[in-house]
């Protein structure tokens, strides 16, 4: 009775990948282990291979993409977020500079715009705090150009642009392309979009 209960416990607790009748050699090790547990294998060999390839490819994309777009420095951002210490000394009212760097790494336009990247005036304040001494102004400048190009191509969702405009996340240097794009859309969809006063 007690033995049965004990066996039940064991089965419930341990992973059963061993022949239970065999004596124990070391804590948890039995003298004979089953050759191959077919049910453990499933049909997963190729899935595992594909997953590993996916992992490696994702890494490759994360490194090669910034290289291709002329921002190789972003690959060695520590993401230690030391740049957050810029605080209210940032004239663009950006609070999370590290997010901008990471967004630049993979050309994540949504994150870059909504974290206030288009407000950056490239003053270099955050650079003084960077632990890896990245040339943040250069990175942000390159990214801003790419964002403008993407907006003109219509790659950036209008929802993002509308939100950014409403929150004042588009710097005055970049208002024109954004507004132009929105006006073009307005002609198409007849949605009322406020026309901001420039200068």
């Amino acid at each position: 009775m007690a033995d049965e209960k004990q066996k039940k416990d064991e089965q419930k607790i341990g992973r059963t990948r061993q022949v239970e009748d065999q004596p124990v050699a070391l804590p948890g090790i039995r003298r004979f282990q089953s050759f191959t547990n077919v049910e453990d294998r499933m049909l997963t060999k190729n899935i595992n291979r594909a997953a590993m390839f996916g992992v490696a490819a994702a890494m490759g994309v994360a490194v090669l993409k910034p290289l291709f777009h002329g921002m190789p420095q972003t690959t060695y951002c520590y993401e230690c977020r030391a740049c957050y210490a810029t605080q209210d000394k940032c004239p663009g009212r950006i609070t999370e500079q590290a997010e901008l760097t990471v967004a630049s790494r993979v050309l994540d336009y949504r994150r870059f715009i909504l974290k206030g990247g288009m407000n950056c005036i490239r003053c270099g304040n955050c650079q003084t705090f960077c632990a890896a001494h990245l040339d943040l102004p250069k990175i942000f400048g390159t990214m801003q150009k790419l964002v403008v190009a993407a907006i003109e191509e219509g790659y950036v969702p209008t929802g993002v642009l509308a939100q950014a405009l409403a929150e004042g996340k588009i710097g005055r240097d970049y208002l024109l392309p954004v507004v132009k794009y929105m006006q073009k859309l307005k002609k198409e969809t007849e949605k009322p979009i406020p026309e901001p006063e420039l200068m």
Binding site: V61, A62, V106, R110
Partner: peptide, 21 residues
Amino acid sequence: MADELRLVPADVIGRIILHPV
């Protein structure tokens, strides 16, 4: 929100913290 779709892959890959790896 079909035009939001294009940015999903970049957002996901952007979450890789490259430095520790």
